[in-house]
Design a protein around this nucleic acid. Structure first.
Length: 215
DNA sequence: TAGGCCATCTGGTCCT
DNA sequence: AGGACCAGATGGCCTA
């Protein structure tokens, strides 16, 4: 799914202006900011803070400042608060963009059919996990055949899950179908016709065959 | 229209 | 103090 750059700015602007607590003085803002953590500071919380030590605190603060520059400093305070929030938002946005870039890079090395099909975030992570596991198994086979060792013969149940048993969350992209060499769509992707990821081979020998097909 | 996915904002917490 | 990380909330877009 392609990102929609047009929608972001609108919500940004509205949310930013919405969150500036109109009608709340900066004394209150200061008190709330320095109050013990409360998940969602309700108006009641703010009133409570105002009713207790916050007033006295701000009086002290004003006395220390000389009590003359109140309007200016309040303005500066709220400006500073907004600017800090804005900076934090920018950082968070960048952080998420970096995360998405890494996810895209990961998608780039995962085989999908068709090539331009885009896995969702969760699908990418799950498939990468399973893909790595399947490659590991393939290498193990290669090692064993290289040195003339008897290939291990784990059960298909084991092979269906990197954890050697219950597929669990990570197994949701696995095809439990045991058709040797089949690249059947993974379970959770069956609802997305046209998009297939190479399911983890259900048997070790199939694994080698299957992966030599798409690697 | 409901549900899935996504981007963004936000406040809290931890770390440097 | 400031930055990184996280999880919850919100709203937009898309598809069945």
């Amino acid at each position: 799914m392609a990102p929609h750059p047009s929608r972001a700015p609108a919500s940004q602007v509205t949310r930013e202006t919405e969150q500036s607590f109109p009608g709340v003085s900066d004394d209150e803002v200061t008190c709330v900011a320095s109050a013990p953590p409360s998940p969602t500071p309700t108006p009641g919380d703010r009133a409570e803070a105002e009713g207790s030590g916050c007033r006295a605190g701000s009086r002290k603060l004003r006395a220390r400042r000389g009590g003359r520059s109140r309007p200016k400093s309040e303005l500066a305070l709220s400006k500073q608060r907004r600017s800090r929030r804005k900076k934090a938002n920018d950082r968070e946005r960048n952080r998420m963009h970096n995360l998405n870039s890494a996810l895209d890079a990961l998608r780039g090395v995962l085989p999908t059919f068709p090539d331009d099909a885009k896995l969702t975030k969760i699908e990418t992570l799950r498939f990468a996990h399973n893909y790595i596991w399947a490659l590991t198994q393939t290498l193990r086979i290669a090692d064993h055949s290289l040195y003339g060792l008897e290939p291990p013969t784990p059960s298909c149940e084991e092979l269906c899950s990197p954890d050697g048993g219950s597929p669990g969350d990570w197994g949701s992209l696995y095809s439990p179908v045991s058709q040797a060499g089949s690249l059947s769509p993974a379970a959770s992707l069956e609802e997305r016709p046209g998009l297939q990821v190479p399911a983890s081979p259900t048997c070790l020998h199939a694994s080698a065959l299957a992966f030599s097909d798409f690697l």
